[in-house]
């Protein structure tokens, strides 16, 4: 009796969820963006939302729920409605970085990953153009010669912090580590000679590099953006130094796999259009970059494995 009932219930559940998926979507889809309007994560999510509206035929509403490098939003919606109309748009550096640095105690496994749908133009390690350092190796060697004199500006807890830990502990560099705040503050500090080197997004550094005020030593992406080829990568000097920020769409844990698949199909369709190629070419100097569900999970896992392998050197108690 009990077994029969369970079977019936299971069958019903399957029926309900499949019929659920068959005519999905029927109403407005909500996407919660983990970072503020005006940033790259928000821009990419909104562009994707606009494309999805065309493909799925329902409206896609994006709301920013910000704070703590995206942790607030992820904390709030990881157990959100599993009806297939709730999604979270974030970036992988925040998702995996927050777990590695101990800001939160959950990772991508706490969600149903839908798709990785883009990659950032990345950060570059930069110095003043008047300084003698031409490569990352020069900078590291110089810091070993005169320990504690070269000031490296970082901000705690984020990708830049992971970078500094790798440079110091694996690269054996001997920098004087200075807390200099977010990317804009680090740029101010570098221009105002309060630090000697730091890592800032290529997009903020580009003008200064062109004008000959700053020099880029390398990108911290695993490889140069497609439209900015030929830059040395930090991983050529230290293999572990790879900070790829990719854009990811997640669903709350327990969202039916059919819906996740259907959403992923829509994302892949959106990313394959020439319109999308123009958007990402213009905005992040990258070519379209996207995966199916399995590929996205594998991608997230690879970055998480790398970050988690660094936890011992992050010295976070």
């Amino acid at each position: 009796m009990g077994k029969k009932f369970l079977c019936a219930a299971a069958l019903l559940l399957v029926l309900v969820s499949s019929s659920f998926a068959a005519d999905w979507p029927t109403k407005t889809i909500n996407i919660y963006v983990t970072h503020a309007a005006g940033g790259d994560t928000d821009y990419m999510a909104r562009q994707l939302g606009a494309q999805l509206e065309k493909i799925l035929g329902v409206s896609v509403v994006l709301s920013n729920v910000t704070g703590s490098n995206g942790a607030t939003c992820m904390q709030q919606y990881r157990n959100g409605a599993k009806d297939g109309y709730t999604f979270i748009a974030t970036n992988t550096a925040a998702l995996n970085g927050n777990e590695a640095t101990g800001m939160v105690d959950f990772g991508y496994n706490a969600f149903e990953p839908v798709a990785v749908y883009g990659i950032q133009s990345g950060e570059n390690i930069v110095v003043k153009a008047s300084s003698p350092y031409k490569t990352l190796q020069d900078l590291i060697n110089a810091s070993k010669e005169k320990p504690g004199t070269i000031r490296l500006g970082i901000s705690m807890g984020g990708g830049v912090y992971i970078m500094a830990c790798v440079l110091m502990n694996i690269g054996k560099a001997q920098f004087n580590i200075i807390e200099a705040g977010d990317a804009a503050n680090r740029l101010t500090a570098l221009l105002g000679d309060a630090i000697d080197a730091t890592s800032i997004p290529y997009s903020s550094a580009a003008d200064y590099i062109e004008k000959g005020e700053l020099r880029s030593l390398c990108t911290v992406l695993s490889k140069s953006p497609t439209l900015l080829p030929g830059q040395p990568a930090a991983s050529d000097v230290i293999p572990e130094l790879k900070l790829d920020t990719e854009y990811a769409l997640l669903a709350p844990k327990g969202t039916p796999p059919e819906i996740v698949k259907a959403m992923n199909d829509a994302v892949m369709k959106a990313c394959a259009t020439p319109e999308w190629k123009k958007i990402v070419n213009d905005f992040s100097w990258q070519d379209p970059f996207y995966f199916d569900v399995e590929g996205s999970i594998a991608n997230l896992k690879a970055q998480r494995d790398l970050f988690m392998s660094l936890v011992p050197i992050l010295e976070i108690e």
Binding site: A36, A37, G38, G39, D42, Y43, S203, S204, A206, D207, Y208, E210, K211, E213, D282, F283
Partner: peptide
């Protein structure tokens, strides 16, 4: 900060150039 985002999105990079 929002205005900066608005400029960047229209491919206007504020800076010395």
């Amino acid at each position: 900060a929002m205005l900066l985002g608005g400029l960047m999105i229209h491919n206007v990079a504020p800076g010395p150039l």
